[in-house]
Design a protein around this nucleic acid. Structure first.
Lengths: 318, 318
DNA sequence: AACATTTTCGCAAAGCTTTGCGAAAATGTT
DNA sequence: AACATTTTCGCAAAGCTTTGCGAAAATGTT
């Protein structure tokens, strides 16, 4: 319509220095009128990179992931990217399929939290060989040579335990999640390390529960058997199980019993008194994961494992 | 490598009847070895449709949306689609930008829950004119000529109220969310309709709160002033505010006070006794939204407003 | 005015598929 | 054996950009 070539129009719209002001103006005006919108597929095909990141998680409807995703989305939008969300429903096969999906849609990078059953991470490494950076977050593989961002399990555990010790608690019940999850083991190890520091001045019981209901049962049993004066809950799931029993038995917090948890903070503030917790923020982890992705995409970076700090949020439950 | 044309390879990989079995076999084998993967961009460019849906929500980290998204993702995956998630942070401008994003990446369809401040829905209708179907869900515009799937606000409210009436409650405190939200008004209207049915046998108080904290305050005030024997909570947010006060004052549920809520069920089961609620399932809504999208994409369908049923889940709080 | 330099634009290829149409090869029919 | 039909494949265009390179036009320089 303007009697000029496609290449001139293309350059005009991208403010290329080769094109005169007048031409640019004319092109922009007509583009406006015609509501021209570049075809993303053609751009991607030509430039061979997309403005999308893949996010692979075991399940979205997890206490932790939606704050991570929400925070990550906020960040990527600023840079003109979008997020493709894929759930693995804790199944390594679907996870693999999701990975393939990401590779096929040639995303710019992938954020992945692996399932509890994922053992073979070679497929992930293979994707990285094709210059699609992968940032593992939260549930990360044990294998060293990959980029990971995690919450500070050991620090968070330490903070939570220290809070109990400061309050001179003597009999701690520590409840952990599924014994097969690495996160449980990390937090357990940190817990036992703290206990070891204290020598025999503190006694403690340890139990595992892989659901809120199981946590309720374990807690009820422990109440009868070991009469703890404080409970350490490794996760929101455990905490909700414990709190249900506390409401049922009308146990007075913190007089009869102290509670401390590790959490991102949503669940703890539902109760009265609010539960003290060592913060593991999905929000912060999202920001960190993104900045890590950006440096990876820039290219010049070594594989690294990063953790976000944790702080103790006081809540009247200890 | 196989000494055949690109078109033959293309057809062989798609099991086109024009190609002989032997050729197909050879192509497939080599494709396997070379780990050939079709370039999605080129396919999309050529066929002009993508295997992605856009999802635009005010915020992911909402009690309701992650179950919706989770359920939707499950469904779309079966059909080979992915989900692009975009947050509007309750800002109509960002919402518009997100819509543009979807249009530009030429998604196959868009699921959108509008912000509380969205007034102009013309941009949405314009996108529909370009054959990108839009399904509004949950927070939908008042404008009729668009596809909507919603929870049954009025039925849910009715079920919740009926549960209180059955238990012969006489003084109901009804707490609603932000008075400007259409959802609050719908539920309020339904509530008042139920009350009107009962004539003067029941007295009730109504209040609004646009945060959990505000709900705590409103509830505390109402406790002193009107001494209700039952509380109706319009949403999870309201419920959490109310429950915090209940824990604080150690009010005995259901002896001193009955509680009923409208919820998708996660929050109510955190308490003891579990809170009775009329179910508004994000999970079910996701399924419905998807099936609606499919019929829209098939083309031959009129604009419709659909709602999902609600059922009362008993919980010992009434 | 003759030449050099800068400004401004267009040609054409490339990125990777899909697909209509035609043609060669293979097979069937009398 | 001569023809008709079916099977199998390839050519080439199209989808919409980007971009290197060359060329024309405009401007500057002596």
């Amino acid at each position: 319509m303007l009697n000029m070539s496609i290449s001139t129009v293309s350059r005009a719209l991208k403010d290329h220095p080769d094109i005169s002001k007048e031409t640019k103006e004319k092109v922009r005006e007509l583009a406006e009128i015609l509501e021209y919108e570049p075809n993303t597929y053609a751009i991607n095909l030509r430039t061979n990179n997309s403005k999308e990141f893949g996010v692979i998680v075991p399940a979205i409807s997890n206490y932790f992931y939606h704050s991570f995703i929400s925070s990550l989305e906020e960040e990527v939008r600023r840079y003109g990217y979008s997020l493709i969300i894929l759930q693995s429903v804790d199944d390594p096969e679907i996870e693999l399929e999701n990975l393939k999906r990401c590779k096929q849609s040639r995303v710019a990078g992938i954020f992945v939290s692996i399932t509890s059953k994922t053992e073979d991470i070679k497929p992930f490494l293979k994707v990285e060989d094709q210059d699609i950076p992968i940032i593992f977050f939260d549930k990360v593989p044990a294998f060293e040579a990959c980029n990971k961002v995690c919450v500070a399990d050991s620090l968070a555990t330490q903070l939570a335990v220290e809070a109990l010790i400061t309050k001179k608690k003597k009999k701690i019940l520590a409840l952990f999640g599924d014994i097969n999850l690495s996160i449980s083991n990390k937090r357990l190890a940190a817990f036992e390390k703290e206990m070891a520091k204290m020598g025999s001045t503190i006694s403690y019981t340890i139990d595992f529960a892989n659901s809120a209901k199981a946590a309720s049962l374990a807690f009820t049993k422990a109440l009868e058997e070991s009469k703890p004066d404080a409970v350490f809950c490794m996760s929101d799931e455990i905490l909700t199980g414990v709190m249900k029993v506390i409401q049922k038995l009308a146990i007075k917090i913190p007089n009869d019993l102290s509670i401390v948890a590790i959490s991102d903070g949503f669940i703890p503030q539902l109760y009265f008194p609010e539960i003290a917790y060592a913060e593991t923020s999905g929000f912060k982890l999202g920001k960190l994961a993104f900045s890590r992705m950006m440096t990876c995409m820039a290219g010049n970076s070594f594989v690294q494992e990063l953790t976000i700090d944790s702080v103790l949020i006081n809540g009247g439950s200890i």
